[in-house]
Design a protein around this nucleic acid. Sequence first.
DNA 1: TATGCGATCGTCT
DNA 2: GACGATCGCATAC
Length: 231
Amino acid sequence: MPSESRSPSQSSLAPHSGFRPLPASLFAAKALDASPRLLGQTLVRRSEIGVIRSRIIETESYGGIEDKGSHAYGGRRTNRTEIMFGAGGTAYVYLIYGMYHCLNVVTGEPDDPQAVLIRAVEPLTEEDERRMRMLRKIKSKKPADLSGGPGKLCRALDIDKSFNGCRLNVPTSSLYLEAGDDVDGLDIVCGPRINIDYAEEYAAKPWRFFLKDHPCVSVNDKANPPQPFYR
DNA sequence: TATGCGATCGTCT
DNA sequence: GACGATCGCATAC
């Protein structure tokens, strides 16, 4: 029986077979470049209740020490922000308002703090949705209530601070990224980032990116209708 | 459907 | 000691 003669470890590798990595250039790029490119890509969470795959719907760019909206503004290098100063490809996870976690993809070169906040995802399949619902513990069936929002998606995927520093570019991690279906550039819109009023002239920069008219988008900012974005 | 507000704690000053 | 890269509930219309 040829199939039985394979290494026992083969079975544990099965979930990774067919892994489609994102290009290294995406992780090495500036956050402003990586943000729209992350839309449509697949976020994979290998959780205790099973593998959950989701599609990235909305992102925000936080780039460089000059960005007054960034935790690393002015080169602030603390225990919390340290991971952003490393090479791209890792996760930056922090606690906000004392009760919610936010997931960022660190990008760029070492010593240049670049991060992309993941603001919304959608489950890829009904089974993925069932697992996310189990973790969220909500009654609402509105897609945006499940995982449309940085705190919501972290609950739906059981992501907490223990994922800070997690390598997102390798399929052996319990949280990683892989290539999804291509997104038409014409479906991408942009607008100002959410809840960073303190960022002065940086508050109005159109550095939030999302898929046009998608039901999982976290906030509909009526004062700032989405603008087209062309690659 | 829209708006207002309280929860809750790690992080930095 | 102050303040969030938020969310969910209550209230109003």
